[in-house]
Computed example of a mutant assay.
Amino acid sequence: GYYAKVFGSHANCLSYPDGERTWVQLESRANQIARLLVEHQVVPNSFVTVALPNGILFHEVCFAIWKVGATPHIVSHRLPDGELSAILQLLKPAVLIGAESRGVEGCPALQIETANSTYSDAPLQPKVAKHWKAMSSGGSTGRPKIIVDAKSSEMDISQSLFDLPSKSCILNPGPLYHNVPFSFSHSALARGNRVVGMGKFDAETVLKLIQEHAVTWVMMVPTMMHRIWRLPEGIRSKYDLSSINIVGHVASPMPVWLKEKWVEWLGPGRVYELYGGTEGTGGTWMSGYEWLEH
């Protein structure tokens, strides 16, 4: 409710292909879903497995989980039954949300659609989870690995990691079941940013959304940047990207020639590289200027 007071009741915080939400609507819907979770024995510091595609509901569910002091455990909604079952047996979450409501023995599947207007959307007493997220990984052994973040769900919004803005607009072109899209999208919302999300990546749509929403910050992987660069120059040049302050890249090595092209296109002060791991043991953030020096 805080940002609804700051920006007004009609200010949007989420824009996706499946719709938009204002800060008021996000708060209301998260409170309703939170009450549904409590009704299904979700207690503080329990895990709730989220297997949803990119969209409005994904964020509503995660904020509801934090509201009850629990931890969202994120998996791909496309995960094969065998892998999903192995992960759920390892973690033993309170409930599973999404993945077409597939479940395993001992892990009930919850239909979020039942959290309708019969549940109150009144504010809830704040609770803090010991762990703010848990991400899944196949690991190097081929066995499922769950990376539980050591940080709590209480966030210091005065801290700006990796030049993430405040009260601005960011674009997320990646799947929310990956650590970087998940972390930055929700951290951005916590800092009062509007998040523009994509259901699936499309090179020209990225440029269109940057222009349409005056996006100031976006994080991509080199493959995405390669696809954008391969667009005909007439398409790339017809969009206004002047709002962008940061284009970051992460997750895999960036070809030198491609980095040079992006630095030439946007300037070295707007192209940044992030290196780090899901475990959160450390990371580096390097500008195009620093990259050119090396």
Score class of each variant (00 low, 15 high):
Gln159Ser: 10
Lys145Pro: 06
Ser152Leu: 01
Pro123Phe: 04
Gly98Met: 04
Gly82Asp: 14
Ser153Ile: 02
Leu84Tyr: 09
Glu105Ser: 14
His131Trp: 01
Met155Cys: 10
Gly103Arg: 05
Ala99His: 08
Leu91Ile: 09
Glu100Asp: 13
Asn116Arg: 13
Ala86Lys: 13
Thr141Ser: 14
Lys145Ala: 07
Ile146Tyr: 07
Glu83Thr: 10
Ile146Trp: 05
Pro80Tyr: 07
Gly103Ile: 03
Ala134Arg: 00
Asp121Cys: 09
Glu105Leu: 07
Leu124Ala: 11
Val148Ser: 08
Ser120Asn: 10
Ser140Pro: 07
Glu83Arg: 10
Leu88Glu: 11
Pro123Asn: 10
Ile97Gly: 06
Pro123Cys: 08
Ala94Glu: 00
Ile146Met: 14
Ala86Val: 02
Thr118Pro: 00
Pro126Asp: 08
Arg78Trp: 06
Gln159Leu: 11
Leu110Thr: 01
Ala122Cys: 06
Ser101Gln: 15
Leu91Phe: 00
Ser101Asp: 15
Pro126Met: 06
Ser140Asn: 09
Ala115Thr: 00
Gly103Leu: 00
Ala134Tyr: 03
Leu88Ser: 04
Gly98Lys: 03
Pro144Lys: 04
Pro144Gly: 06
Gln89Thr: 12
Ala134Pro: 01
Ile112Ser: 08
Asp149His: 14
Ala134Gln: 05
Ala86Tyr: 00
Ile146Pro: 05
Gln159Phe: 10
Gly142Cys: 01
Lys130Arg: 13
Gly103Thr: 08
Asn116Gln: 11
Val128Ser: 07
Met155Trp: 15
Val128Phe: 07
Ala129Leu: 01
Pro126Ser: 07
Leu79Val: 13
Glu105Cys: 05
Ile147Met: 12
Asp156Asn: 14
Pro108Asp: 08
Lys133Tyr: 10
Ala109Thr: 14
Gly139Trp: 05
Gly139Ala: 03
Leu124Gln: 12
Leu88Phe: 01
Leu124His: 10
Gly82Tyr: 00
Arg102Ser: 11
Asp149Trp: 11
Arg143Pro: 00
Ser158Cys: 06
Glu105His: 11
Lys145Gln: 12
Val104Pro: 04
Ser136Arg: 00
Leu79Asp: 10
Gly142Pro: 03
Leu96Ile: 14
Pro126Trp: 06
